[in-house]
């Protein structure tokens, strides 16, 4: 008998939640869209998508969602892209704003400029299978990492895909590329932590 598949949520306060859910479904994991704090209790893992991190914070600060989410990401696997990465970081600049601190990095918001500076790059990654396409949209930049952080890909000198234990984060949008390796890595992290 196969073990029950882990319950994965996608935070759906706003932003690119649908594209993440579609990608997870393609990889055989049906995701639950999470809009209320009470939904987290039933989940084994959570994806925090791109969107506007200020808008996420406004919603989270209502009705105690922030504290519940804070507990969740400190104990269970979470994967943040772009705004999600900002939310998971320990420190946020440009401007300073509250964050969950589950990942020991500092992040600068909108660090590469505005939408006209958004770009698609291909770079080396330590993930198996060769170089990785990376879609950057009004992207943040990781400006500091602690010793415990594993860097899986870089843009120039800046880490863009990082892992610390059960937390995975990217400053780009793997959900907007056809390459499923980053989501697959997250599913592997989830499966190994729920065994």
């Amino acid at each position: 008998m196969t073990p029950p598949s882990p319950a994965i949520g996608v935070l759906a306060l706003q932003g690119a939640f649908e594209v993440h859910a579609r990608r997870l479904a393609e990889l055989g994991a049906d995701a639950i869209l999470v809009r209320k704090p009470g939904q987290l209790a039933a989940l084994d893992a959570l994806v925090i998508p791109g969107g506007e991190s200020t808008t996420f914070l406004k919603h989270l600060e209502r009705t105690g969602f922030y504290d519940v989410l804070n507990q969740f990401v400190h104990s269970k696997p979470a994967f943040g892209t772009c705004a999600g990465c900002i939310l998971l970081a320990k420190e946020v600049t440009n401007p300073h704003q509250p964050s969950l601190g589950a990942l020991d990095i500092a992040v600068e918001r909108n660090a590469y400029g505005r939408q006209n500076d958004s770009t698609i790059l291909t770079a080396e990654t330590s993930l198996p299978g060769g170089s990785l396409e990376m879609v950057f949209i009004r992207a943040p930049r990781i400006t500091r990492i602690s010793n415990g952080i594993e860097v899986l890909a870089k843009r120039g000198d800046s880490p863009v895909l990082v892992r610390q234990g059960h937390i995975l984060a990217s400053t780009f949008h793997p959900e907007l590329s056809d390459d499923p390796r980053v989501h697959q890595l997250f599913l592997d992290i989830v499966r190994s932590s729920t065994l």
């Binding site: 969107g51 949209i137 907007l176």
Partner: peptide, 14 residues
């Protein structure tokens, strides 16, 4: 076009 619709994706639900 992917970058353009990509930003539109980020604005969904808002």
């Amino acid at each position: 076009l992917r970058l353009k619709t990509g930003l539109a994706e980020m604005l969904k639900g808002g």
